[in-house]
Design a protein around this nucleic acid. Structure first.
Lengths: 201, 201
DNA sequence: ACTATTAAATAGACGGTGTCAATATGGGTT
DNA sequence: AACCCATATTGACACCGTCTATTTAATAGT
């Protein structure tokens, strides 16, 4: 049973997924409705249920794909990183910030725990992989830290995510979010770099 | 025209507001529907439009009230704060963290820019007041900072908000979010305190 | 090759939502 | 007493997710 040309439509699942991503980028998650998907794919409103149990399953699939992308981006960044002591800050920072600013609606969806299946094992595994990569880098780079490793990891990820979330939600719209010519996010990364450097007072 | 007993219901506006808050705390923002509100208040589904133009107006009113509460909490905390150099970290940190963990659905709503009216002047003013308070405290406490004042403010608020958002969304559920007996959030505040202390290397 | 099975797609229904238009109601003012 | 107008009701419309047959088509078994 070749899954390629399995039925009427070819492979509707991929078409639906791509349509969902397109709608997400254009209209935000509220625009990603089962029925809009079906319209986009030119099938009846009941068709998608054969490929995605419900909207939660669809959105969870979208989220997993995005975390895969981010994980890959982090891994590539790490393998190409300089030997600088705290290169991980820029690798993780850029991976998340670039993704967030390029695909704001995708990024917002990543944290809509009310819309996706938090029990999904693949999803948990993906997030753990990213978090573990972060912790590993912190351990390598800040070996005798006086800070708890997890605390540094949580603080870093929290700062990045918090900044992105506030910016992308539109709640925080600075007229000019620059500091001495540099974007604010770069300043945030530098500030954090200084934290872990001065740490061993 | 006394606004107290102005009509049939007494003052439906307040009843609707309270019902909205109750529904928000119980079911999250998705449970705050115009029609559920009307049911709760025992009026027809079309009645609320006389007091809240649409759902966006209602949710915006809810958000403004919450920011008022937070602002008041911050102000009280500051006036009662010790003379410790970086007391503001605990005042702002506790104000936000306590509010977030006590009323998770309210806190999440604060940042749903897609659901509320971001052009609302009162709302902007409230957020500015909180942000300005934060900046003032940073200026008083870190006078000759090598860090840009706004960057410190943004970094701090980002970290707090990011941590809260990840925790409350359920995406980040550590088995045991403690570090050497203390809750993680306390560790985050201590870490940030260390940052601004060691800053003037 | 024909049939049986099963996956996939359709069509229709139900209950829910926000929002709008038309209508009814009642308090306060003239 | 007559009027006005804010308030409340009712009903409609277009969406939504999801469930139920029902039909269609591709595959598997004999």
């Amino acid at each position: 049973m070749s899954k390629e040309t399995s039925f009427h439509h070819g492979d509707l699942k991929r078409v639906l997924f791509d349509a969902a991503l397109k709608l997400l980028d254009r209209d935000g998650v509220d625009g990603v409705t089962i029925r809009a998907l079906a319209r986009e794919a030119g099938v009846s409103h009941g068709a998608p249920v054969n490929h995605y149990r419900d909207r939660e399953a669809l959105l969870t699939a979208l989220v997993k794909r995005q975390f895969e992308t981010i994980l890959k981006s982090v891994e590539e960044g790490l393998s190409a990183a300089t030997a600088a002591p705290n290169a991980w800050i820029e690798v993780f920072g850029k991976a998340l910030l670039d993704f967030g600013f390029q695909y704001p609606h995708r990024y917002k969806l990543l944290w809509r725990g009310d819309l996706i299946d938090l029990q999904d094992n693949d999803l948990s595994k993906l997030m753990d992989q990213i978090y573990d990569q972060l912790c590993d880098e912190i351990e390598r780079s800040v070996p005798e830290a006086e800070f708890d490793r997890d605390t540094v990891a949580v603080a870093f990820w929290s700062m990045i995510h918090g900044y992105l979330d506030m910016r992308l939600s539109g709640m925080f719209v600075p007229l000019d979010d620059k500091v001495s010519g540099k974007p604010r996010d770069v300043a945030l990364l530098e500030l954090f770099k200084m934290l872990v450097s001065h740490g061993k007072s």
